[in-house]
Design a protein around this nucleic acid. Structure first.
Lengths: 205, 205
DNA sequence: TAACATATGTTAGTGCTTCTCACTTTGACA
DNA sequence: TGTCAAAGTGAGAAGCACTAACATATGTTA
């Protein structure tokens, strides 16, 4: 019994692949992380999945749709990680906001290729409604925590405003750190300290 | 007397162009803004500049170098705009920091293609030392203003920390606004209010 | 169980891309 | 004015996304 039977197979065994769609998404993810979004080619993904270069077009309309599918999968993982990061932190604590922020940055640093495809506007076509919707979903989680911290039971305009500030900050931080390999500020960035400080400042009256 | 004689000519007149390097940079800029970074092709730039597709390689090593040259030019423009935005605002005022932030966001919204090429990590090759250096130069301006606001005469570690926070925020804001076409937060974003609020919060003790 | 319909694969090829090579034109200066 | 380097050209190689026509496997139904 090989891996191929237990989890999504990357390469096919016989004439048919079994689940080429999933195989190609995984191949796409790996290659994007390895070579960057612009270094990705459909041909490479085909080689990795062990199929001909025409095969993907039975599952995706074009290259862009392959990337969108991969990014959507990544965003779901991203969102799940964020929710999981809240575990064990008391409701209403700014530490919950900090934890969300940290998980956000962590994802950007762990999967920079996916992160950039989603947010960097690599492809105009990636400014996709599905991706926007997935982003909103994640933002709603943040807003819920911000509301708790501010003692609000609803998502008031002020809650949105503060949430938006936090999101902007964490978003920018992710890009800068991913870009600069943390060499900014003359050395290591105290990520935890920075996030905690920001959460406090933005959530203060 | 046509434009061609007064400013950088885009198309050539005779066999030689006159300043093909500058012409190609300008063509690149226009096309990147028009079609997005990934929709840009060297061939298109050649057509726009009125030369054969082999001509650029006398001036640039490859496509990437063309993009880098264009972005470097854009960053200089960007930095000049920021410095100009300080004009007339009293030294030491947080309004100076706000003005820098606003100009930063404005550039991102005015030239989103250039902005994304610089910061979005479109091409791994664009993670170029020259671009990083140009970014640092701009950041130094911010740090100077932050120091003034905090009553420091030097760029202390705390000044760097606060400047980094502000940069992260403004950077993220730029991406989000450029991405979302301002449709977030259920409507228009009060950019001035947001920037002023953030400057106050981050510059507070 | 045989046959068909359909999903999913392949091969071959088109047109576009970046980039190279050998060649041509031009302007500047000795 | 003659020469030479700089800056252009055209043709073509290699690689890309994508298509059309064809091949193979699968599962439902007679």
């Amino acid at each position: 019994m090989t891996d191929q039977t237990t989890k999504t197979p990357l390469r096919k065994a016989g004439y048919h692949h079994g689940d080429l769609r999933a195989g190609l998404i995984e191949a796409t993810r790996r290659l994007v992380e390895e070579n960057g979004p612009d270094g990705f080619s459909v041909s490479d993904a085909c080689a990795l999945a062990g199929v001909s270069t025409a095969a993907p077009y039975k599952h995706f309309r074009n290259k862009n749709e392959m990337l969108v599918a991969m990014v959507l999968e990544g965003m779901e993982r991203h969102r799940n990680n964020m929710v999981a990061a809240l575990d064990g932190i008391p409701p209403g604590s700014p530490l919950r906001v900090k934890a969300l922020g940290k998980e956000y940055v962590t994802f950007a640093l762990t999967e920079p290729g996916v992160f950039r495809l989603k947010f960097g506007g690599f492809t105009d076509g990636l400014a996709d409604d599905r991706l926007k919707a997935a982003g909103e979903l994640t933002f709603e989680i943040v807003l819920g925590e911000v509301a708790s911290c501010l003692g609000e039971s609803d998502i008031t305009p002020e809650v949105r405003r503060r949430g938006f500030m936090l999101w902007s900050f964490v978003h920018g931080l992710s890009f800068i750190l991913a870009d600069a390999d943390m060499t900014r500020m003359g050395g290591e960035v105290d990520l935890d300290g920075l996030l905690e400080d920001i959460a406090k400042r933005v959530l203060a009256d």
